[in-house]
Design a protein around this nucleic acid. Structure first.
Lengths: 241, 241
DNA sequence: GTCAACGAGAGGTCAGGCCAATTTAGTGGC
DNA sequence: GCCACTAAATTGGCCTGACCTCTCGTTGAC
């Protein structure tokens, strides 16, 4: 066995752009740059750090993808609000990295979305339940249009997640919803399947409006079970064809 | 009030470099690019995506900072192992630790880890419970070494997740464990805190060995509550200093 | 057969320029 | 004097082309 704890770290020479990334990250973390602050222009930054503009652009771009900075074309570069929800993008990415087992996916969704519904029931006010009700009305208007329905449906789950107030569960639910979309072929979403979903949604909202967390969780879990059923049914039909 | 539901989203034109970022991330997610794979050269990528080399470099650099890619000077660009720590490390760097968010994080962990424990209780065989017991023995050997304990603890939760058989919940639990690591300062993990955790672990394993899913879930949730408590206590002490 | 030196190819960086969007200041009308 | 409109300066987005350094495969000498 090799001698322990050699730690030959220093071989990793830190390139210019990485230095810039770390310097900027440090400034944000230390509070020298606060959310909403505007950074100097790229040309100016290049001079400050004694590097070229492409190098600055690489570093800034990386921090934008990380969610730490935001840039407005022609406006400038700003420090993003740094809220949990904005920074959890990589979680979504990480969660999307698996071969999808449909039963597992919906077990996970039922658990997480159910909890989101329960949390929403505890926190939602009259305005919130009104917003949910409006979304359901819109769902009813597009029963015959699977594409439009899917958009409103996603919006429904997104709002529910927001109402839960838990950014971590929201992210997890979002990624799993996206994963589920892969399987829920649009073709399988017939008007009566959709109207069944809308019925589920209405029960969920009713429980939330009543402030009944357990009922909301239960309703959401049943909804997920229904979605799983129709998804698997469509899957079988496709295989048979 | 402004007219409702205008939703002028589409203004957000997706720049060239962002398109490249998303395309590459999509290829990784879809499995077209697997960990360890080598990407075409920058010049070649530029031609493939019909953009210039600096644009490619910006996108690649961003994905490197994100932990999705790695590059070796003179060697090429490779897909990274895509492990949770790599992908989420940069994020935890910025997650400001407001009490509310710590509560959210542990609410989420309790939910997901609890379900993992319950699933494990339903599926684990004698060999599995023996493995879990062995890990607990190792934990007892390092009560006084927080760093070593943390490694074994992570291994314990990882094995539990594997036994659950649900890849999505496993991933979600792993992400949240990594996110929580930033807050659980090693310094706060004193021997008696650790021995408390080991006691929790033993109760969890006992429930799993008995095949009692509800007891396992409950034990795990209490464990999470304990961890949350000590984490917040350490946080307060640090603020006071 | 082994090993060292060489070179093709890869990433890292730089310089300079054009385009597009935004901001802002100046100008004109009211 | 105030406000709306326009045009120039500013800023990010992207490209071309070049040079450097490092890696690795190959080739040649030993």
């Amino acid at each position: 066995m090799a001698p322990p704890q050699i730690n030959i770290e220093p071989i990793v020479r830190e390139g210019a752009s990485e230095r810039v990334v770390h310097r900027l990250m440090g400034m944000v973390k230390a509070g020298n740059l606060k959310p909403g602050d505007r950074l100097p222009g790229e040309r100016e930054l290049a001079e400050l750090f004694s590097v070229s503009r492409p190098t600055i652009r690489e570093a800034v771009k990386a921090l934008i993808v990380l969610g730490v900075l935001k840039s407005k074309h022609g406006g400038g570069i700003f420090v993003s609000p740094l809220e949990a929800a904005d920074l959890l993008g990589p979680v979504t990415f990480f969660l999307s990295l698996r071969d999808v087992e449909i039963d597992q996916l919906y077990h996970a969704r039922a658990l997480i979305e159910g909890e989101l519904a329960a949390l929403a029931a505890q926190r939602a006010g009259p305005d919130d339940t009104a917003s949910l009700a409006r979304l359901i009305e819109r769902q009813e208007e597009v029963l015959a249009d699977p594409v439009a329905y899917r958009a409103v449906d996603t919006e429904f789950h997104r709002l529910l997640a927001e109402l839960s107030g838990n950014a971590f569960l929201s992210r997890a639910a979002e990624s799993m919803n996206v994963l589920g979309l892969e399987f829920r072929k649009v073709a399988s979403e017939t008007p009566d399947v959709i109207s069944g979903s809308v019925r589920d949604h209405r029960r969920i909202v009713a429980a939330i409006a009543a402030g009944d967390a357990d009922a909301a969780r239960q309703a959401m879990r049943e909804h997920m079970a229904h979605v799983l059923n129709t998804t698997k049914k469509a899957e079988r039909q496709q295989e048979a064809s």
